[in-house]
């Protein structure tokens, strides 16, 4: 009994509520005429789409920079990669890879600068990250209008310049990962094997990285910066590296998202994309200063499950569109919970 209590305290009741809520919805789904297999397939797909962006939270949380509300910076790099790849006109897997490489290039530069900035403002990272993210999105909005793109697939038809708000990737690299080795069961259930493999690869890379000397140092910096410094680790450098890594993961994450989603959303699209990712990793059991791969996987699954199931189940159950409200309350409530929880790092 004591153990159960302790578990609940550690895990946090909000997470348990969310978990049981999701279980309830899966049980209720067939009774309100929602197809379980289709839902499940949908959840898997969304899981794959979003997991890497959630993964992008890990390095920064681990190095003590807090939740990465600056994810839009990574997303912008991803969008640059995606649009340049389409501009180059490379299709198929190659196009996807080119997008990823270009995105990584931009992300590493932006991420490093961003890391240097965050080192100057220790203690205020989250608020500043949020506004740096917003500002960069707006800056890029101007850039999308000004940059000399001319692929007819991307620019406004009537003006001949300036990128469209949404750009389709169809004909370039639409669902290249999803369809790779995809396994179909019946009409409604598809396992997007390629997508899941790619996610697994990214998770593995981060997992291995966190176990290298640098990764270990990074975790120590997050756990106790004074200890790390006394052990000869450069705290600032580790933090910068972690921010860079997070930004790069965000860049890859958005491209993976787009190839499955089918569209590149420019302009103000990335503005609030950090919030679902932050909520997801927190639901997965992470705190403001500790996160693991397991948190990423569990959190993404739970959160995306919630996003998939609430509209269909709740709306057919209550005959209204309450799901939106539930989503807002759950995701922001989770972030709020994590922020106000007395952090257990004892000093």
């Amino acid at each position: 009994m004591l153990k159960v209590k302790e578990f609940i305290r550690d895990f946090g009741w909000p997470r348990l509520i969310i978990f049981f809520f999701l279980v309830f919805m899966f049980i209720a789904a067939p009774f309100v005429g929602v197809r379980l297999d289709a839902s499940f397939s949908d959840v898997l797909n969304r899981f794959g789409m979003n997991a890497i962006m959630v993964l992008a939270m890990v390095p920064m949380v681990q190095s003590g920079c807090g939740l990465n509300f600056g994810l839009p910076l990574g997303i912008i790099s991803g969008l640059l990669g995606a649009t340049i790849s389409i501009q180059l006109g490379v299709t198929g897997f190659g196009g996807f890879l080119i997008a990823v490489f270009i995105a990584l290039f931009f992300a590493s530069i932006l991420g490093w600068l961003y890391g240097l900035l965050l080192n100057k403002v220790k203690g205020e990272e989250m608020t500043i990250a949020m506004y740096v993210g917003f500002a960069s999105v707006m800056f890029m909005s101007i850039m999308w209008l000004v940059l000399p793109y001319n692929s007819p697939n991307m620019v406004w038809g009537y003006a001949g310049k300036g990128l469209r708000t949404t750009i389709t990737v169809e004909g370039y690299w639409l669902r290249v990962l999803n369809n790779f080795l995809a396994i179909k069961f019946g009409e409604f259930f598809v396992i997007p094997t390629g997508l899941l493999l790619f996610v697994a690869l990214c998770v593995l890379i981060v997992y291995v990285f966190m176990r290298t000397k640098t990764g270990t140092a990074m975790t120590a910096v997050g756990s106790n910066p004074d200890f790390a410094r006394a052990s000869g680790v450069s705290v600032d450098r580790m933090r910068a590296i972690s921010v860079m890594l997070s930004t790069m993961l965000g860049a890859v994450g958005i491209i993976v998202y787009e190839q499955s989603f089918g569209f590149i959303q420019l302009y103000t699209g990335p503005l609030y994309m950090a919030f679902p990712a932050v909520a997801a990793i927190l639901i997965g059991g992470a705190s403001v200063n500790k996160a693991s791969m397991l948190n990423v996987l569990v959190g993404t699954f739970l959160f995306q499950g919630l996003l998939t199931m609430t509209p269909s189940v709740i709306n057919s159950l209550l005959q209204n569109d309450m799901s939106e409200v539930i989503r807002i309350v759950v995701s922001n409530g989770m972030i709020l919970y994590a922020l106000t929880r007395k952090t257990k790092v004892s000093k």
Binding site: T219, A220, S223, N224, D226, F227, A230, K290, K344, V345, S346, K347
Partner: peptide, 14 residues
């Protein structure tokens, strides 16, 4: 070996 065992000396959560 630091005098500030909990602050500097240890990674308490590890």
């Amino acid at each position: 070996v630091s005098e500030d065992r909990r602050g500097v000396g240890l990674l308490l959560d590890e």
